[in-house]
Design a protein around this nucleic acid. Sequence first.
DNA 1: AAAATCACTTAATCTAGATTAAGAAATGGT
DNA 2: ACCATTTCTTAATCTAGATTAAGTGATTTT
Lengths: 196, 196
Amino acid sequence: MELILENIAKHVQLTPQEQLHFLSKTTLEHHKAKSVILNAGQISTKSYFVNSGILRSFTINDNIVEHVLSFSCAGWWISDMYSYFTQKPGNLFIEVLEDAEVVVLSKENQEQLYHDIPKLERFFRILTENSLVANQERLMDNLSLSAEERFEKFCIKYPNLILKVPQKQIASFIGVTPEFFSKMKSKLLKNSSQSI
Amino acid sequence: MELILENIAKHVQLTPQEQLHFLSKTTLEHHKAKSVILNAGQISTKSYFVNSGILRSFTINDNIVEHVLSFSCAGWWISDMYSYFTQKPGNLFIEVLEDAEVVVLSKENQEQLYHDIPKLERFFRILTENSLVANQERLMDNLSLSAEERFEKFCIKYPNLILKVPQKQIASFIGVTPEFFSKMKSKLLKNSSQSI
DNA sequence: AAAATCACTTAATCTAGATTAAGAAATGGT
DNA sequence: ACCATTTCTTAATCTAGATTAAGTGATTTT
């Protein structure tokens, strides 16, 4: 069964017809690693649900420093929410890190679906609520935890990403420089080998 | 007209009957400054819309350090979203900073309203989307801006709070110690008087 | 109105993490 | 297989902001 339908079924019950209608409003896309599927400055007209692969969203400050906002792998959504919701140019890039298959939902079709299947309002409301709560926790973590503690939390929350995503991007996600991250990592490895 | 109805009207159109039904599911509460209307460890069963006054939500780390998550004044909602959505004990306190009148919506009644007036799913979805976008921006600001830049943004975004809210709480909100905030402020004042 | 508590300031010292720089290791393209 | 680019590491130096501590003024409590 389609991963995205399983996902919806966790929060609202669609009839088989509704499921088909939902799918008819989406398209499948395949993207190679390193392709950038959204650029800063563009209006984001699409929202992506990841079937397989890994993507990330990030900004670039003063044309130099990247800041990773999110990673998404199978079962997660990714988009520039600001731009997608407001239909104004955003400042996020979305890049494929590992060859990916994504379900694409256009803004237009999403609005159409809200009209055709009002239950989907509920589904996307709950989805957004969950994102908001996760985001608030991350914000508070950034205000109250040390880099080491944030890294520990990252390892617990995204165990599968640790080996798949370039280390400098994990550094950026938790809010430290790649150099400091490397230093911190080797310190952690030293400590854990001591304790054996 | 009720502030909360104006607020809803910005996103969805309710009939006069629906408006009355909505209001019938809410209650009004008045709270004095300094009262704590939600404690960490409790399950949050209510969501508050502020008619007047100021409130804040915050956590306390290791029983010592406070971290302000949000301020809310007239026209804003406030709650421990994690606890309210999941109905598990949260770790936020909600405190009244300035005598407040709030519209109270219980979790129960909110679910009832989703059933009675499905349009409200849409309203709360949009509300949550807007919070999420604002929260993501704040997160990225914390990762990429200096304390001074974050303070400038705060002044632009919440000009009315600067004089009303204790300075140490603004410090906490932007993520610095009260001591550093004080130092930064006097530096900014010195610089701006030089430039006259 | 005194006493106690709280909010803010100032200044000295300290440190987590940034910056700079250079080399080593991995990855990728032809 | 080779060269180029990117990623990671290490180490020295630097700094934004934390910590500690002491003092001042404002507010609240009794």
